[in-house]
């Protein structure tokens, strides 16, 4: 694989996406939400001013888990389905299909990362000035997990786009993927536990965690933010199952990495056998 071609395509994709109005709109909305949550979160509890890094991360966790997969799937599908004429011209160049796939993925990821980081850095800067640096490492790790979630759903967008062929079908399927992982999966696993009793039910629940990247990021974030204990006994059991905090995060990050690589490998195989 020629990495220079990958980087040229990534650079082009980054430029196109950064200039895309939807990326700019997402950056503004996400930035505003993160800053307001950091500020309003404290006010709700009767205090004025900013929350600390840890509390801000915990407060915006749900926002991240809903918005980031949706935006990654949308932007990814837009990029990977593209226009037929543009795709024909690009794939007719002396580049491999894998190089195009990887270049596009990196380009869209960088554009999403920049627009996400804008919000995080802005609110992080304000929090730092108001409350100091306590919890800044956890905040940084949380940001890294958010970027990991973004990359996972971009990889899924690549698979959905390659498998669908048509743009409309790919968008429909992307929405289904979002709905399934963000809303439906937890209901499904909870329903699944009804089939088991006692310990096997717990094991099923914990193992099912690795079947959903959104849940993996949720749990890893809570472990990082020392908040998994808010689940009481279940939280403690989960940590025991994962082998402790550090090993737990490593396992979850490993699981997330598999969720990035696997869809990408399948997309590549499908794309290599497909007509453009």
């Amino acid at each position: 694989m020629d990495m220079r071609s990958v980087l040229h395509i990534a650079r082009q994709e980054l430029t196109v996406n950064i200039r895309n109005k939807w990326t700019i709109i997402f950056a503004i909305i996400f930035g505003l939400l993160v800053v307001s949550i950091a500020y309003v979160g404290m006010m709700v509890e009767g205090f004025s001013g900013m929350q600390s890094f840890t509390r801000t991360s915990a407060s915006i966790l749900n926002l991240v888990l809903y918005i980031v997969p949706l935006v990654a799937l949308t932007m990814g599908t837009l990029s990977f389905t593209g226009d037929r004429g543009a795709a024909e011209l690009l794939y007719s160049q002396p580049v491999s299909r894998t190089e195009v796939l990887l270049g596009k993925l990196i380009g869209v990821f960088l554009s999403l990362a920049i627009s996400t980081l804008l919000g995080f850095v802005l609110s992080g800067g304000i929090i730092f000035l108001q409350t100091g640096s306590q919890g800044i490492v956890s905040y940084g790790l949380f940001v890294a997990l958010t970027l990991g979630l973004s990359l996972t759903f971009l990889s899924l967008a690549a698979l959905v786009s390659v498998a669908s062929g048509r743009k409309s079908k790919a968008f429909g399927l992307s929405l289904f993927v979002w709905f399934f992982f963000v809303l439906f999966y937890d209901l499904l696993t909870l329903g699944g536990t009804l089939l088991f009793r006692g310990r096997p039910a717990n094991t099923f629940l914990f193992v099912s965690l690795f079947g959903n990247p959104v849940d993996m990021v949720r749990v890893a974030s809570l472990i990082i933010l020392d908040d998994v204990t808010i689940f009481g006994a279940s939280g403690a059991a989960l940590l025991r199952f994962l082998g402790g905090s550090t090993l737990g995060v490593v396992l979850l990050v490993g699981g997330l990495t598999a969720w990035i690589i696997l869809p990408l490998r399948i997309s590549r195989r499908v794309l290599e056998r497909q007509d453009i």
Partner: peptide, 17 residues
């Protein structure tokens, strides 16, 4: 493909480039 230059029927370029 190194020996070939191809122009598709409908040429499309990213509008913001």
């Amino acid at each position: 493909r190194g020996f070939v230059s191809y122009l598709p029927q409908r040429v499309v370029f990213p509008e913001n480039l």
